[in-house]
Design a protein around this nucleic acid. Structure first.
Lengths: 213, 213
DNA sequence: ACCTGAACACCGTTCAAGT
DNA sequence: ACCTGAACACCGTTCAAGT
């Protein structure tokens, strides 16, 4: 909220800026999905020539990276809790919350190799307590990566961009039962349904049991 | 290798078929990457009008789903081993091998919600031993899903479509050390490097310790 | 320093026509 | 049943021109 060098409020209406572009782009993704994003459509929404965007953003790929970074920046800062387990759990939930806040944009975070160092604070917040608890740094990093891999995989599923054997349709259940595969048939009622919340907690618990007992 | 109703060998040269299209598409992805895939370019490679593809494939999205299923079909059949742990480990390695066989196509498998029931045999191969060992089906499914989430997340990273804090560049190391974040700086040498093989084994071991002790 | 618009080389897909 | 090609409504980005 620092005043902006006396420029008139025009700035936030017609004045373009990387920030305004990224915010509008995220809104576009939220409303119409990732596939609907195009430089031209985004420019139309901003009331601007498509080429004007290139003054603030390095092309479409960079635009998508920018959106991903906006999401990452929304991970709430986490102060170390009473023990390792609760801080790690809080961070995992914070990451999940930030990503699920914009489900249609989520694949950008989960899928792109981000070059920048956004999201380094959350890493510090995990690594700090682990090191303080006496974990050797190498093992701490392995642990961090295992949890992160799990988070990325579950979130991809939650956001419905990854394979499940579900979405609870009646037919799905019948297909599974008729598959001719005995174990699949026996577990069909559970395969046909997927409660993301409990799947998330289940996997996270297992990992934290192993890492922060 | 069943003979094809006496049609001349022409079939595999100019004759189009879903199979030939998918094989050529996978080759195209392997050579030029996912972004290079277009119906028109694929048709050019097949020496055919772009519109001819639509006689065998339902559009571009369906084409990409088809490629993903080709990859999934390459998961080697796994016969149950001596114990739970080795069969589950074998399956995880089989999945990883199939995906890493076509790294540039991998995101298709890891990222798309597949409608079809390909890859149901691997599920049977995991669930069977779990149920036989007395696991309640609900818990078996949770376990399966936790492992799958981890696999998807790690593979996404291996295939370089997901965030890391590495690829072992000298500068990366220095950036991390200069980040001002003490734990990040302390663990910098390990953060700057990522051996996919050992990360994979580490995470898998933890999960299997919890699921098949 | 920023914005514009024409132009280029592409896309996926519909549709009517051919064999 | 399968293949074709013109046509439509889009793309991302370069480049020269404006202010």
């Amino acid at each position: 909220m620092t005043t902006r060098r006396g420029r008139p409020p025009k700035d936030s209406d017609t004045g373009l800026s990387r920030d305004r572009i990224l915010r509008e782009a995220l809104a576009l993704v939220d409303e119409e999905g990732l596939d609907a994003v195009s430089m031209r459509k985004l420019a139309r929404r901003l009331g601007v020539d498509p080429m004007s965007l290139y003054n603030h953003v390095d092309g479409k790929e960079a635009l998508l990276d920018g959106i991903a970074e906006v999401l990452l920046a929304a991970i709430p800062a986490t102060t170390p809790g009473p023990d390792l387990r609760t801080t790690m759990s809080a961070l995992a939930h914070g990451f999940r919350g930030a990503v699920l806040g914009h489900p249609r944009a989520a694949p950008l975070v989960l899928t792109r190799r981000l070059a920048s160092l956004t999201a380094l604070e959350p890493v510090e917040a995990v690594l700090g307590p682990l090191l303080a608890a006496g974990y050797p740094p190498e093992r701490a990093v392995h642990g961090l990566r295992a949890v992160l891999a799990f988070l990325i995989g579950t979130l991809m599923r939650e956001v419905s961009a990854a394979p499940t054997f579900s979405h609870g349709s009646r037919e799905r259940l019948e297909e599974l039962e008729a598959s001719g595969l005995p174990a699949v048939a026996a577990a069909a009622p559970y395969l046909a349904v997927c409660d993301h919340e409990t799947e998330f907690e289940f996997g996270l618990r297992i990992l934290l049991d192993a890492l922060a007992p």
